[in-house]
């Protein structure tokens, strides 16, 4: 199995992604929408995120998707692309997009599963396009890292506290 590709985020694509995520919050009447990569790193978030530990949520979402992905493999299913968790006040809809990133929508009684599903479908298509373009860009030669110039001193400085 090949290793996944290096994940990079640029301003242009970030703004496109943020636009989709902001729009989804409104269109789906959601409380919170966020996007995580499969390794658990938060890519973008929108909505009522101030009181939310998005870093922890991102890691747990990725763990969740990884576990269900493992189950799918054992069952010879391709992937379980959608998950839904129903709580007493809040619900969580999780959608795997392009087998690369995870789109999470948290919503309450002001919305409904039907509406969320519908809007997620549309947003997923848009996100898929953006991420495909992003991955192509990353593959281009010359898209090299700003870290080529890191010195030993830079690294040591990180630990000087």
């Amino acid at each position: 199995m090949a290793r996944d590709q290096q994940m990079v985020m640029y301003e242009e694509e970030f703004n496109q992604i943020q636009f989709v995520v902001d729009k989804l919050v409104k269109d789906a009447n959601a409380k919170v929408v966020f996007i995580v990569d499969k390794n658990g790193q938060l890519i973008a978030a929108s909505g009522d995120v101030e009181n939310l530990d998005t870093t922890s949520l991102a890691s747990l979402t990725a763990g969740n998707i990884a576990a269900t992905g493992g189950m799918a493999k054992l069952l010879r299913e391709d992937e379980f692309a959608t998950q839904f968790h129903e709580g007493t006040k809040q619900n969580v809809h999780i959608q795997l997009v392009g087998n690369r990133v995870i789109l999470v929508v948290i919503f309450d009684a002001r919305s409904s599963l039907g509406l969320v599903r519908l809007r997620v479908k549309k947003a997923s298509e848009e996100l898929n396009r953006i991420f495909e373009a992003l991955l192509k860009k990353v593959q281009e030669p010359g898209a090299d890292t700003p870290f080529a110039e890191i010195s030993d001193e830079d690294i040591d400085n990180l630990f000087n506290d």
Binding site: V8, M9, N15, Q41
Partner: peptide, 15 residues
């Protein structure tokens, strides 16, 4: 693998 975020100016690494 590491995730370089030019927007947030972050580099994320997993250990």
């Amino acid at each position: 693998m590491s995730f370089i975020n030019y927007m947030a100016r972050e580099i994320n690494c997993k250990i």
